[in-house]
Design a protein around this nucleic acid. Structure first.
Ligand SMILES: [Mn+2]
Ligand SMILES: [Mn+2]
Ligand SMILES: [Mn+2]
Ligand SMILES: [Mn+2]
Lengths: 220, 220
DNA sequence: CTTTATTTTTAGATTAATCTAATTTTAATT
DNA sequence: AATTAAAATTAGATTAATCTAAAAATAAAG
């Protein structure tokens, strides 16, 4: 069973939206997430239903199937491996990889992905801290908490970002909040949810709730 | 001006056929070379004509334009750089790279190709001995002669193969005729055009005219 | 110079992916 | 419960790439 590039993109979007814990994934959500029109989504849902990667009853909603999950995770695996390649080997900045990986993830060759994985030394996380599924679709995820939800005096290590937009990533570069940085919450402002943190025991940083909620921390 | 994947494939085929020194490139030739039907080719020729990558007058024939050459060489450059990557870095065999490179050549990102080129140390030839055009489309080609056209006692070095099919390349692997091998023509059979050669001053090899005509040698 | 063969193009369909506009269904408000 | 609003689907077009079958143009034979 092989999917087209468009089908892979839809399925990936559906998988991501499903994982976000929402009760169910709406046609509009999908349309927004892949920048297309709801009418196109309806059409594609019917096709994905026929291919049995989702269970779909019109107007009722959809559910991704086990087969669908497996295929989505394969695409995600490829996407993230290519991101590691671009950053580690070709020295792309972490905000420059997304578009290219979006294309590379659709290259069809199991040998290629096996070899790439080995070449990169079987990485477990991509440049944004997201876990790379293994070839069977198993994901080893770490328990993570959004920075804005930590309490004062708690410490930890930045392990991932929720938002991978170039604007956000470049902002993090600028303020020195990189993946792997050790942080500690110094203060929280009740009023607007902004936080003050200590980075690597030397630099203090203020950030809005909006920013903090997009930074994921492994608590220590 | 951007081309679709299909357009890039057609243009590449047209460029290769044009270079083969034929008077002109026929619709049927193109169809055969990319495994499609002449009717589809006619249609595409009209489109490529409109995009001015070829000059096309129906029934009369076509001529690739300067713009067309430039774009074709860009795709060929990408194809060959990826082939080098697959062989040098991911340890693909030289007969395993073609299909994958056929997909990778369509990835759109100038940054990616610049970085890949640098990462591979600006290779000048691909695993099959074909020259890699620079970013401006300049090709530094070496004077080469088909092995079956050499005379007895002449020597040289295998620098490329004309046929890149897996079957042919695996045959060459088996008999030990690799790119870079130093050879000398020991004997030629007038009757069927087959040749006997000495490889690396230690191994003698018989090969049919058909095989020899697909091996290109830099004479010394 | 006709007739035949070959090559090339057109006509008409098909499949995939997308859109706008209209319709239908479900959800929310009075 | 009736009306309005929102969400989802369908209808009908469009663009790209392909195919088969038919027609037209060119080339080759006689
Ligand atoms: Mn994609
Ligand atoms: Mn990522
Ligand atoms: Mn290709
Ligand atoms: Mn090659």
């Amino acid at each position: 069973m092989e999917l087209t590039t468009a089908e892979e993109n839809y399925l990936k979007a559906i998988y991501h939206l499903s994982e976000e814990g929402k009760k169910s994934v709406s046609t509009n959500d999908i349309a927004a997430s892949i920048q297309t029109k709801p009418a196109s989504v309806s059409d594609m849902l019917r096709k994905l239903g026929e291919k049995e990667v989702i269970q779909y009853r019109k107007y009722y909603g959809l559910q991704i199937t086990e087969l669908g999950k497996r295929l989505a995770l394969q695409t995600i695996r490829k996407h993230r491996l290519w991101e590691v390649f671009l950053v580690d080997k070709l020295h792309f900045a972490w905000d420059e990889v997304h578009e290219v990986a979006e294309q590379l993830e659709h290259i069809q060759s199991t040998l290629l992905i096996e070899r790439l994985d080995a070449y990169l030394n079987y990485p477990k996380f991509d440049p944004h801290g997201d876990p790379i599924p293994d070839e069977y679709g198993d994901v080893r995820s770490r328990p993570r908490i959004a920075l804005n939800e930590m309490n004062i005096d708690q410490g930890g290590q930045i392990v991932a970002v929720k938002d991978s937009s170039a604007a956000f990533l470049r902002y993090l570069d600028k303020v020195g909040a990189y993946i792997g940085a050790r942080i500690k919450v110094l203060d929280k402002v009740e009023f607007d949810g902004s936080v003050e943190i200590l980075v690597d025991q030397k630099k203090t940083l203020f950030m809005s709730k909006d920013v903090a909620s997009n930074i994921l921390v492994l608590q220590s």
